[in-house]
Write a protein that binds this DNA or RNA. Structure first.
Length: 902
RNA sequence: GGGGAAUUAGCUCAUCUGGUAGAGCGCAAGCAUGGCAUGUUUGAGGUGGUCGGUUCGAGUCCGAUAUUCUCCA
């Protein structure tokens, strides 16, 4: 039996022999495509070629591509692991023709590989072809049908509708009919009973699609219409995990040697067998989480065993996704792609926590197994094994903490639930989930244990409202490109020039919420499009009669687009495209400084330092690195020192604009994980023994132009990732100037003190001493007054009272005096009035025994007195206070108090 | 991009509707035991994230801002 690794190799070798260039998998994390966060199919890395934004480098390509899907036709995240054949991460084997071969060869080769080499029995294979669609005016795919007929019996060639057999990249873009290959894996007796053809595309877990051949020949426009494509392409995708399952004759993807190493490890840790489900004895389940849930009857134990199987599948699937995503540069976070990774990670932790009784981090310990398993095909994980494990560990700890907080909140909710009600508000459950990240299913489990349940309908309504809010806020409407001229690709001249003549090649309008703008594409441009952390250029587009502001420049699938609020009136004109030079100069200085800092960090901290993120704009630079401790002040000073030396050495830039990537690597140039490089790259060198990086950004001609570099902050962004921020050039000079100025001002304020620091510390000490002295003075004053006053109480039957105007230094002292009297005179009511800073104040204190007997309540008394001084007041039964604005009312208040108490 | 929440002593967190800022742990000192673990008593430690507003009075209500958490897209 072939191993998974052999099956993959066989595929690649087969197509290499058919003159295909074998390329490595692109990073699973997508950059430069606003519509996609992760590579979700084998073709995604080639989107720029299909869209015509990039030239074709090889007419034939084959590869295995890491893919990630969390939503889609059958791939809701919450479904993964429940069945035995869906995944969040999977490998897609693919062979491509870019304007080269078409249906004939694609069909012949897929047949040859599957039946001739992999030896899948012919009588288990079904193929589908597109039946046509009248509404779209699309014909039956006769061509594909004829080619298949050469190999496959006609009754095994099925006709599929638009949903199954017409593939589209998205709402817009290249598309075409496709032809799927399905394999019937059922045992012979079942196959005799039910004809396999009836189960194709019918969600039968044993009759599955393994390969889809897409024949791209149309382009879908924004208005929904179809246009024929000038160059026709073949895009195929074969689900690797499914293929392995078929060839290893398993009934579940998770039973193959792709997933078993992980599952066996998880099974060993939890001491629960995988796959016992259905034949499990009633007592076999040793799972406290389920027992707590009340699963003690035999039937529920069978259920429990299924749940432990599901949990192991969830973990085996998710650990792959998060490990490879992190290795490709996507750290877990709380927005966008980072959030997707966090959510997947948490789902795995949740299943382990709930069904396998893993109460401590465990996912991180699975990373080495994966790293070794995939070392040959995806070496990036093995190379960053420790880093990935550390990030996962930190995430697991953070989630366990979140769970703890949630458990406490839920406890409060249960305590406060009116007795007798068995239902907890769905809104509260939603709040727990939405605000505190406490998973709904855990809420339900815990409530069930106490005989409670939530109002599911309320929860769903709240959830739906949340979704609608988000959808409305992000609705973007993109119109079709209006093409003015045909060109191969925009020529970027911005390394050498800051302005050039340009014509608009195409443009389109984009409507987002509250704003509307245009995207312009030029035939040539000096504008650098945001990439590799360097922000896009701004500037202007000028003709004889017009001036249009360019507010940003971005890359969409390798297409440089210039953002503008307006279109020129004369769109066909020739323009001068001019970059904002001073801004570009600042950006450039920061970018080169980033390289110098990067090299210095490697020198000071060690070779384990890798770039984990970078932002370069005209204000500052931000640089994230993998490093496990805080970078100490001393280390930062060393880095600054090295960078400073390199600046003063005024090292000339050496730029290799286009050299083969292999040459660059053998020179020792630094390449980044998670970055997609072409086969020709640009290398930026500042002293070949110091800094040599693959980079597309703009750089200073010599390091002296940076002038000055100052690291302004060092912080943590995630486990194992430190962030360094720095400024250069004018901004750095300004920084020092401002510091110096501020210091001079401080010094001046201290009468030009020689030792400023000592002077300030002395002042602080003096200040706190004075504060204490005032406190003491006030305390004494209060004591004196209270000693006098405590003998002045009038005795009534059952209580004593005092109504008195006093003079005290502060509101605080006033309060202390009142409370001190309350404490010293038993069985008393104290009403004090004072004027502090021209404001009248009243304090009322009632001793606890009188409060208990409800003879007097301070809060009630103050409400009667406050109006006299035109104020409001309130407090507790034992102490209340009021303030007002009318000093003339003081006597009235005193009289009223006497009246009440007499 | 849009919602929600949090920010109080060195740490973890209380303070019900605006009216006396607290607890546990940690820290310091004293006492108890031959010493330690420990027990016990006392004490220090707070511009309540920052800025503004409402109010006689704001940790508490409102607005802005920063940071963190969290959910949705």
């Amino acid at each position: 039996m072939m191993t998974a690794n052999e099956i993959r190799k066989t595929f690649l070798d087969f197509f290499a022999e058919k003159q295909h260039q074998i390329v490595p998998s692109a990073p699973i994390v997508v950059k430069n495509d606003p519509t996609l966060m992760f590579i979700n199919s084998g073709m995604a890395p080639f989107k720029d070629i299909f869209l015509g934004n990039s030239p074709i480098k090889y007419p034939r390509i084959a590869d295995t591509q890491k893919c990630l899907r969390v939503s889609g036709k059958h791939n809701d995240l919450e479904e993964v692991g429940i069945d035995t054949y869906h995944h969040t991460m999977f490998e897609m084997l693919g062979n491509w023709s870019f304007g080269d071969y078409f249906k004939k060869e694609a069909i012949a080769w897929s047949w040859e590989l599957l039946t001739g080499i992999y030896k899948i029995p012919v009588d288990r294979i079904y193929v589908t072809v597109f039946e046509g669609d009248a509404k779209e005016n699309l014909p039956f795919d006769e061509e594909a049908y004829q080619y298949w007929k050469q190999y496959v019996a006609e009754d095994r060639i099925l006709r599929g509708n638009k949903k199954d057999n017409f593939w589209e990249m998205g709402d817009q873009g290249p598309c075409g009919p496709c032809s799927e290959i399905h394999v019937d894996c059922r045992p012979d007796d079942e196959r005799k009973l039910i004809e396999g053809a009836t189960l194709v595309n019918n969600d039968d877990p044993q009759v599955i699609e393994i390969w889809n051949n897409v024949f791209m020949q149309y382009n879908r426009l924004a208005d929904g219409s179809l246009q024929p494509l000038p160059a026709r392409h073949v895009d195929t995708g074969m689900g690797f995990e499914r293929l392995v399952r078929v060839l290893q004759q398993k009934t579940s993807n998770y039973d193959t040697d792709i997933f078993q190493p992980i599952i066996q490890q998880v099974s060993a840790w939890s001491k629960i067998n995988y796959g016992d489900f259905a034949s499990v004895p009633a007592h076999a389940s040793d799972n406290s989480a389920m027992r707590e849930a009340g699963g003690n009857s035999p039937s529920q134990n069978a259920d429990a065993s299924e749940k432990t199987d599901i949990a192991m599948r969830v973990i085996a699937d998710h650990i792959r996704t998060i490990s490879f995503a992190i290795a490709d540069g996507q750290l877990p976070g709380n927005v966008k792609a980072g959030y997707v990774i966090r959510r997947i990670l948490r789902r795995a932790v949740r299943y382990g926590f709930q069904f396998l009784d893993f109460k401590k981090p465990f996912l991180c310990n699975l990373v080495p197994i994966l790293a070794n398993q995939f070392e040959a095909v995806f070496p990036e994980l093995k190379k960053q094994e420790d880093f990935v494990a550390k990030v996962i560990l930190e995430e697991e700890n953070a989630f366990l903490k979140t769970l703890e907080i949630g458990l406490r909140k839920l406890d409060d909710v249960i305590k406060n639930n009116p007795s007798g009600s068995k239902e907890i508000s769905g809104n509260i459950a939603f709040e727990l989930y939405d605000t505190f990240g406490f998973p709904l299913d855990l809420t339900q489990l815990i409530l069930r244990e106490r005989g409670l349940h939530i109002n599911q309908k309320e929860f769903d309504v709240a959830m739906e409202a949340q979704k609608n809010r988000a959808r409305n806020a992000t609705a973007i409407d993109t119109e079709d490109w209006v093409v003015l001229r045909e060109i191969d690709a925009t020529q970027f001249v911005g390394y050498d020039m800051l302005e050039c003549e340009a014509q608009i090649v195409k443009y389109r309008k984009v409507k987002a919420k509250n704003k509307e703008y245009y995207q312009l594409v030029f035939d040539r441009t000096p504008f650098y499009a945001e990439s590799g952390g360097q922000v896009g250029d701004t500037g202007v587009l000028v003709s004889d009669t017009e001036l249009i502001k360019i507010t940003d420049t971005k890359k969409e699938n390798n297409l440089p687009v210039h953002i503008s609020d307006h279109l020129p009136n004369n769109i066909q004109d020739s323009f001068i495209a001019r970059v904002d030079a001073s801004k570009r100069k600042a950006i450039t200085s920061n970018h080169s400084a980033t390289h110098l800092i990067h090299a210095a960090l490697k020198e000071v901290l060690g070779a384990h330092v890798n770039q984990k993120g970078s932002l370069v704009n005209d204000e500052y630079l931000r640089f994230d690195i993998s490093h496990f401790q805080k970078v100490s002040d001393e280390e930062l000073r060393k880095v600054e020192q090295i960078v400073s030396d390199k600046i003063r050495a005024n090292i000339a830039l050496e730029e290799l604009r286009s050299i083969p990537i292999e040459d660059a690597k053998s020179m020792g140039a630094t390449a980044l994980f998670g970055e997609k490089y072409g086969d020709h790259v640009r290398v930026i060198i500042f002293d070949k023994d110091y800094s040599m990086e693959l980079c597309g950004g703009t750089h200073v001609p010599a390091t002296g132009q940076i002038g000055l570099c100052k690291i302004t902050s060092e912080s943590a962004v995630a486990a194992g990732v430190r962030r360094i921020e720095a400024i250069t050039s004018d901004k750095a000079i300004q920084y020092y100037e401002e510091k110096a100025k501020a210091f001079d001002e401080v010094k001046l304020a201290l009468n030009n003190a020689k030792d400023v620091l000592k002077n300030i510390n002395d002042l602080k000490d003096e200040n706190s001493q004075l504060k204490k002295r005032i406190e003491k003075y006030e305390e004494e004053k209060v004591n004196t007054i209270s000693n006098t006053l405590k003998t002045n109480y009038t005795a009534k039957s059952g209580y004593h009272f005092l109504v008195q105007r006093v003079s005290v230094p502060s509101a605080d002292a006033f309060k202390n005096l009142t409370l001190s009297l309350k404490q010293q005179v038993n069985n008393s009511v104290t009403v004090l009035v004072s004027v502090i800073d021209n404001k009248p104040m009243i304090n009322v204190a009632v001793t606890d025994d009188l409060v208990a007997s409800k003879t007097f309540l301070a809060g009630n008394i103050i409400k009667e007195l406050a109006p006299f001084i035109k104020g409001g007041g309130g407090g507790q039964p034992g102490y209340a206070s009021a303030g007002g604005s009318d000093v003339n009312g003081v006597d009235g208040a005193l009289n009223k108090a006497l009246e009440i108490l007499n």
